[in-house]
Computed example of a mutant assay.
Amino acid sequence: MKGVHILLAIALLALASYLASASDPSPLQDFCVAINDTKNGVFVNGKFCKDPKKVKPNDFFFEGLNKPGDTSNSVGSRVTAVNVQQILGLNTLGISLARIDFAPKGLNAPHTHPRATEILVVEEGTLYVGFVTSNTDNRLFTKVLNKGDVFVFPIGLIHFQLNVGDGNAVAFAGLSSQNPGVITIADAVFGSNPPISPEVLTKAFQVDKNVVNYLQKQFGSDNN
C-alpha cells in the first residue's frame, strides 16, 4: 500500500510540473520593453529587451485610436492594431488591443488569431458576429450586438463581424497576446504567395478549376 502512495505522489508531482511548464512563466521583472537590437542577446518571444534604465513613458504609449480607420476597401472595414509592434512596452505582457471600423455593410472577413482569445465590445452601430468550432462538429455560434454589447471569440477559432446597421460601426477588441497574429481565411487560401495549386483547391472546395482561378485573382486584401 505504501508503494501505491509513493507512485501516486510521483504522478501528482509530474502533473504539477507539466502544468507549470504548459503555461506562461511568471514575470521576473516589471517589464521587458522590446528593442530591435540584433547585435546582442537572445530573442524572447521574438524581441530583445531594452535596458530598463533607458525605458521611457513613450514605450508604453500609443495615440490616435480615436481616429476612424479608412474603410474604403473591398470589404468595407479597417482594423487598427495596437500590439507589441506599436507599443514596445507590451513585450512579454500577453495583451493587445485593436480598433475595428466598419462602413455600412462592412465585413471583418472570417479569420483566426492563432495565439489569442479575443473579447469584442461594440462602441457604435450594430454587428452580426460569430465563430465556428473545430472540425469535431463545425458548430456556428452567432449573435447580433448593439452598442455596449460584448462577445468573446475563443483562441484559434474562425470568426467574423458584419455591420448590419444603417450607418458606420465601431468596435474595440482586447486580445490575450502581445502579438496575436491574424490569418484571414480567404486571403490565406486564395491569395498565398506563391499560389496554392488549383488541383488542391478544386478538390478541397469541390468546385471547378475556373472558379479557383477566378478567386485567386481576387484576393490579397489590405484589410489588416
Rank of each mutant, 00 (worst) to 15 (best):
A109K: 15
L120C: 05
T80L: 09
S72L: 13
A116G: 05
V79D: 04
G165C: 06
D30C: 14
K105W: 14
N108V: 11
N146F: 06
V150A: 00
D70I: 07
T142E: 10
V79A: 09
N58M: 11
G148I: 00
G69R: 04
P154Q: 02
T126N: 10
A116S: 04
K47L: 15
V150M: 00
N58H: 11
A173C: 04
K67R: 13
R99I: 05
F43C: 14
D30I: 10
F102G: 07
V75I: 12
A103M: 07
V121G: 01
K143W: 09
D30W: 11
K39I: 15
G94A: 03
L145G: 00
V144I: 05
L88I: 13
S96E: 02
L90Y: 06
T71P: 11
P52T: 03
G69E: 01
A171E: 00
L175T: 00
C49M: 00
C32H: 01
A171L: 09
N36S: 15
T142W: 02
R78E: 05
A109D: 07
V55N: 06
D37P: 07
I158V: 12
N66F: 12
G76Y: 08
G76Q: 08
N138D: 09
F172P: 01
H159N: 06
P114E: 02
V55K: 08
I35P: 08
P114N: 04
A103F: 08
S72W: 06
L162S: 01
K105F: 13
G41K: 09
S72A: 10
I158Q: 03
V164L: 09
D137I: 12
L162H: 06
R139C: 12
F160K: 07
T142C: 08
N58P: 14
F60T: 01
G89V: 00
E124T: 04
K56W: 13
D59M: 03
V164N: 04
N36C: 15
T126A: 09
L65P: 13
F62M: 12
D166S: 14
V152E: 01
L127C: 03
G76V: 08
K147C: 05
V132C: 02
T92H: 02
T136N: 13
C32L: 07
Q161N: 06
N135E: 10
V170A: 04
A173V: 03
S177M: 02
S74C: 15
V152C: 03
G125R: 03
E124I: 05
C49F: 04
I95T: 08
R139G: 11
I119Q: 05
N146I: 05
V84Y: 08
F102V: 08
V55Y: 10
G64H: 06
P104S: 10
H111R: 03
V150Y: 00
Q86W: 03
